[in-house]
Amino acid sequence: MLKQLEELKLKVLRELEEVSEIKELESWRVRYLGKKSELTRILRSLATLPLEQRKTIGALANEVRADLESSLKQKRQTLREAQVVIQTKEEQFDTTLPGRPLPIGHLHPITQTLYEICDIFISMGFQVVEGPEVEWDYYNFESLNIPKEHPARDTMSTLWVDSKAESDERCMLLRTHTTSMQLRVMEKTPPPLRVIIPGKVYRYEASDATHTPMFHQIDGLVVDKGITMADLKGTLYEVVRRFFGEDRKVRFRCDYFPFVEPGAEMAIECSVCSGNGCRLCGNSGWIEILGAGMTHPQVLQRAGLDPEVYSGFAFGMGVDRIPMLRYWIDNIRLFYNSDLRFLRQF
């Protein structure tokens, strides 16, 4: 009986080895480990054997059974792995076909730039403020030390609104700069003040590659005790460093704007010629990006602030030029032509 068991084991295992399909494994199991299998029959017949024999044969039979079961498990594992290998190796699958097209739109490049710049200022404690685009002469000019017949008005050709009310002496215009919000902000909010004012501005200017009658600006205003020109310089340098990168050279020079004193202009090194001079920068090597300065004492006074106590700085920058410089866009009108072939590039 022992010999019979040994032979059975060898035969059955040999057969198992020859199995090559997972689905054949089950019939093998039924045949050799199932209820009607020889092994089960042997185990069932143990009861009829004398105790001594029952012990040895029983032990062996159980051992054989365990062997077969573990061999089966192993075989199944092997076959499965082989099958996975075959599947992953042989199946043809073209991953280069495009994915299902989910719709995704694009923010306008000017919006993207505005958000990017605003976020830098927000991280420095500035608050975003917006204001009217149709404005009184007072806020756009008079309050900023630009009375009627001031030569600075000539540099900002103005679109005037045809105001119906003839009795009304106040002139309505389309704001020529976002600086028009300075006094409004100061009138509304007492210092300390740290705001930026993004928005649309308008000029009486014919369209060409570098001019449009509508464009965007961001103005900034800080008013508090002890604000200095060094703070202005530090703030603007930090913004330029974050926006244009660590290595971009910056120039900070004297300039004139009626509503600041001292006044300044900031330029960055031209990215096209690296400061050597080219057509883009008018051969100067510099690209002017913003005007700035210390808030003029008269402007503070108009807002009811004592210039002996409070000081402030202000700056204003054109926004449209920035994506133009960044992406080498050669025509500002592309921003306002709504051509998807342009807008979908950003």
Binding site: P103, T212, P213
Partner: peptide, 12 residues
């Protein structure tokens, strides 16, 4: 833009 819209900015 998540719904697939492209933003335009036109003259006022």
């Amino acid at each position: 833009i998540g719904y697939g819209f492209d933003e335009i900015v036109t003259y006022s």
